[in-house]
């Protein structure tokens, strides 16, 4: 922290945080802020008795957030009859809420699988958090089995809107973002209260309440073309959760209900890969029936196969592929002015 350079700022941050957790777990009745700042390692060295401790108090506020971020539940207790008096507020960490339930056990196979699950994320907050969860799991001392074959799974969150949306989802903050629907010439600003972030068939979607439409909507992160901005409004998510499950179920239902037919060139890469796509069925005459969620995403995929595939139905898919190929041919035609 740049703001303080007192000589005793030498106590490392992790030592101060560790000491704070220990002190708050050990206390039965809680400690007041003043008691914490004057006695706990890392604060006491900087505490000025009877003086101005404003910067130290701010430090304590930030430390509280850092500790709560780790899933450590810090309680505040108001002494009876003294409600509203901040100076008498007592802080503590209840052992029962801190400890992982003692009957929670994991087999070696489960530890292996969780270790693998933690490697799925290689970037961003999901990676840092799953690594931390894994460290906590390892504290149980359970050995993991070596899997039969090594796995290196990797799931990305490439859209830059992912982290700000995840933060808004946690804080229940309504956000706005420019959303470009295919076929529209300009993005439109949408106001959304985020309820879930789900990855469906390789694509990240935001599920939330569209405040202008006053109804739930699903947005493709790839079509959010500018940074999401938090509004000052917060909202109450539905009781009991289940939004992610609902969003995935809706996307699945959509995927099952929409069918496209394409003709593939026998023996081509398109013939092999499209036939292997989940939900595909191969018909006579090199025709494959595909299931899909979004006509424009399927059109991108089909266009990348070029002459190996011809989109037959529905008509809007066929038109979307032709449009892409036309743009592509035009953009790569020999430049006249060169």
């Amino acid at each position: 922290m740049p703001e303080s350079s007192s000589p005793s700022a030498r106590v490392p941050v992790e030592e101060r945080l560790f000491s704070l957790v220990l002190a708050l777990v050990a206390t039965e009745n809680g400690l007041t802020k003043n008691e914490i700042l004057s006695t706990v390692q890392g604060y006491r060295q900087r505490f000025v008795s009877g003086g101005d401790n404003t910067s130290l108090e701010r430090q304590f506020e930030r430390d509280k957030d850092d500790i709560r971020d780790l899933g450590i539940p810090m309680e505040t207790v108001e002494p009876p009859g003294e409600q509203g008096n901040n100076h008498l507020l007592r802080y503590r960490i209840s052992k029962g809420d801190y400890d992982l339930p003692s009957d929670l056990t994991f087999s070696a196979q489960e530890i292996t699988l969780l270790g693998l699950a933690s490697t799925v994320w290689r970037q961003g907050s999901l990676s840092a958090e799953s690594q931390r969860a894994l460290v906590k799991l390892r504290s149980l001392g359970i050995r993991s089995d070596d899997p039969v074959i090594g796995y290196a799974p990797r799931l990305r969150t490439r859209e830059s809107s992912f982290e700000p949306l995840r933060a808004a989802l946690e804080r229940h903050t309504t956000v706005t973002f420019p959303y470009l629907k295919p076929g529209d010439s300009a993005p439109r600003r949408r106001t959304v209260s985020p309820l879930a972030l789900v990855q469906h068939r390789g694509r990240w979607h935001l599920y939330g309440r569209d405040e202008d439409a006053a109804a739930p909507r699903t947005f493709l992160l790839a079509r959010i073309v500018g940074a999401p901005r938090s509004t000052s409004k917060s909202f109450e998510p539905p009781e009991g959760g289940g939004s992610a499950e609902r969003a995935l179920a809706e996307l699945d239902a959509l995927w099952r209900s929409q069918r496209a037919t394409v003709r593939v060139v026998d023996g081509s890469d398109a013939a092999t890969r499209l036939a292997r796509r989940p939900g595909s069925s191969v018909d006579l005459g090199g025709v494959i029936t595909l299931q899909y969620t979004d006509v424009d995403i399927l059109a991108d995929e089909l266009a990348s196969f070029g002459p190996e595939v011809e989109a037959l139905t529905p008509g809007d898919l066929r038109a979307a592929v032709i449009k892409r190929l036309t743009i592509l041919a035009h953009a790569h035609a020999p430049a006249e002015e060169d």
């Binding site: 899933g71 933690s118 490697t119 907050s125 990676s127 799953s130 504290s139 990855q199």
Partner: peptide, 16 residues
């Protein structure tokens, strides 16, 4: 005892 997972930590592993 081992500390609990945070809501975000549990979510990250569950999604994985």
């Amino acid at each position: 005892e081992s500390p609990r997972f945070s809501a975000r930590e549990a979510a990250a592993l569950i999604a994985g």
